[in-house]
């Protein structure tokens, strides 16, 4: 069986939210793929594919969320931590501004951690607290996950205070308000916008290149 065929089967198992089938498939490939290959050729592309499918309405949020959760579990079980290539990227954090709708943030964390990105999870926080933590942690990229419009509009305050304080970090936004209004991220002054959690890795890598 080819890697492509394994990948499709793995993705289909995730879409069916079938952890056992996904585990079995990963174990089958142990003879032909190294742990890193399993991560980079099966797990990450499958998650990105599902995220893209959700972005264009062909998969549901529950499938994206459960896929991330299943992959985190399987990576913990089957892929030795030292084998996972840690990506050399600018310090990145994720936050939900003043809102308790955190599902999107959890999905972003799952996808990025499964992809070998060390991401700081600030949970739900207000703007001032977020800025303090960014300074303390030396964060260069902040992902802001949103569901509610008022939470999305808080990015204006975040950006204004960032600029006033002369802080040097990029703001990446994502979530329902930005999909419903594709002009919104420009209007509020974000540096980039992701249509889906699966866009996050590419955006971080692009911003990292710009920062070099």
């Amino acid at each position: 069986m080819t890697v492509e065929s394994y990948r499709e089967q793995f993705r289909d198992a995730l879409l069916k939210m079938n952890q056992e089938a996904a585990r079995e498939l990963l174990m089958q490939t142990a003879e032909v793929l190294t742990p890193v290959q399993r991560l980079e050729s099966l797990i990450i592309p499958a998650l990105i594919d599902i995220g893209d499918q959700w972005g264009c309405g062909n998969a549901a949020l529950s499938q994206l969320y459960m896929s991330g959760r299943i992959c985190e579990t399987l990576i913990d079980e089957l892929i030795p931590i030292l084998e996972v290539r840690r990506r050399d990227l600018p310090r990145t954090a994720v936050v939900v501004l003043g809102d308790f709708h955190v599902l999107g943030k959890r999905i972003v964390c799952s996808l990025l951690r499964s992809s070998g990105v060390d991401i700081l999870d600030y949970g739900t926080a207000e703007v001032d607290e977020t800025l303090t933590r960014i300074q303390e942690d030396g964060v260069k990229i902040l992902l802001v996950s949103t569901l509610m419009l008022h939470s999305a509009l808080k990015v204006i305050e975040l950006r204004t205070k960032r600029d006033a304080a002369g802080l040097d970090f990029k703001i990446v936004v994502g979530g329902a308000p930005f999909r419903m209004d594709e002009m919104l991220w420009h209007e509020i002054g974000a540096d980039a916008m992701g249509q889906s959690a699966s866009d996050a890795l590419g955006i971080i890598e692009n911003l990292a290149k710009e920062m070099e």
Binding site: S62, Y65, M66, V102, L103, R106
Partner: peptide, 11 residues
């Protein structure tokens, strides 16, 4: 119960 926990309950 929160969105994530509810999806996990269903599953």
């Amino acid at each position: 119960m929160g969105f994530g926990s509810y999806l996990e309950l269903m599953h």
